[in-house]
Nucleic acid binder design. Structure first.
Lengths: 233, 233
DNA sequence: GCAAAACCTGACCAAACGGTCAAAATGAGG
DNA sequence: CCTCATTTTGACCGTTTGGTCAGGTTTTGC
């Protein structure tokens, strides 16, 4: 998962030999690269790759276009850097799914993590959505190797819970897709959610309501809900 | 919901007076407009509005860029036309949710319809996703008026089922969001689904498996699943 | 405090883009 | 076959965009 990380090789800075150790960056570089990546994330996630302009990103980062291109050799390189930067955070929640834990607790935690990311980093969610909807031109390999392996691994976990009779039988991969879909929906389609409900996940009450409803629905779907079958008058 | 439909007013064809009746189009116009809208849908849904170029759409439609611009005054007009064309089909399934019907049957049918659209018209799904992710600049009004009203109406339906004790209590709007999210996921994120599973909804077996899993999960989540609580050894 | 490296800028360029226009080609009606 | 409206084209234009470059300014190491 490193092939997407900072691959500044030539054309940008850091090409001279008198470098501060290996791969480390000067204070200015660190600050400016961070500013650029943050601005780029905002821009890319808002208008997509083709809609983004280097000029606007530079302005948002508080520097000239030329200066930005001093740090990143091209728009494409900048995009890949942004993508790589958030990829690990993106996959982290799924990694923590523990086969030895209690299914209800594990899934609750996973759904909660994903929803928290949707609330706190909706731009990241939208960036991935954009990338994948365009056919994952730069993420394709990662999906087919790392992500596929990770999902296969966690499918085994779910399968083991099923075999142990801890949850109802479901196709594990669809369960994972369902969790992704529902949680990311609130970030990716926030404008629609806002149009209909008037709020979004940044509102703590709405977040709580969403988390409860989605979690209950999925856990009940797996036969994991506490004995509360009926509750009507 | 008509403000987005064909609003060819000036600049294009049909501006002369010797017209074939009111609003009707010549055979050539009909054919070419259809070709253009089809090509435009493909292009817009694949690369987004900003990523699409008039030239490529024209080539895909089998005509020159100039000729395309004879039929549609601008790229923006073409985009809105595509959007309006598929909007009604998009909302239709939700409209059919019948308060008098059996909840399980109704929801089954709704999920099935949405998933069928994801399978047969994934481009349409992606186009809407793109539009909404960009902040719904041209669909905003429709969402806040028509869609909001429609959802409110159907939330009442679901609420009535809850009050009647036919389904477990859930926040209706989140239930609708969950159905949208899960079904559209397979169209919008098809590249990811393919990377992980090797197929997509165009494969009948995969479609069937998806429909069954998603439907069962949601219905069970609502307490609607037949008495099959446990099935383990 | 002084070189040398790192950082930054504005002017510039070629390509791609959306859109215009005059004129040619094509079709339909008499 | 002629005429006129419709359809189609290619040449063209102004703007925007990603990217380059030569040179100026600041920071850093000694």
């Amino acid at each position: 998962m490193k092939h997407l990380a900072a691959q500044r090789g030539k054309g940008g800075p850091l090409k001279k030999k008198t470098q501060i150790a290996q791969g480390s960056l000067s204070r200015i570089q660190e600050k400016n690269r961070a500013l650029i990546l943050e601005a780029a994330l905002q821009e890319f996630s808002k208008v997509g790759y083709s809609g983004a302009t280097v000029e606007r990103i530079a302005t948002a980062a508080g520097m000239s276009k030329s200066n930005l291109l001093y740090y990143f050799p091209s728009k494409a390189a900048m995009y890949e850097s942004v993508l790589g930067r958030i990829l690990d955070d993106w996959l982290a929640p799924l990694r923590t799914l523990d086969p030895l834990g209690d299914p209800a607790q594990e899934l609750r935690a996973y759904i909660g993590s994903k929803l928290t990311i949707s609330a706190r980093h909706p731009q990241a969610s939208r960036l991935f959505a954009n990338e994948i909807m365009r056919g994952a031109p730069r993420l394709g390999r990662v999906l087919e190797t790392d992500l596929k392996a990770l999902v296969a691994d966690k499918c085994d976990v779910i399968e083991s819970w099923i075999k142990a009779g801890k949850i109802r039988p479901v196709n594990p991969v669809h369960l994972i897709f369902t969790i992704w879909a529902t949680t990311q929906h609130y970030a990716d389609f926030a404008p629609q959610v806002r149009a209909i409900t008037g709020t979004d996940l940044s509102d703590p009450d709405f977040f709580a309501e969403t988390e409860k409803t989605v979690t209950d629905l999925i856990l009940a779907g797996l036969g994991l809900q506490m004995p509360q079958a009926a509750k009507v008058a």
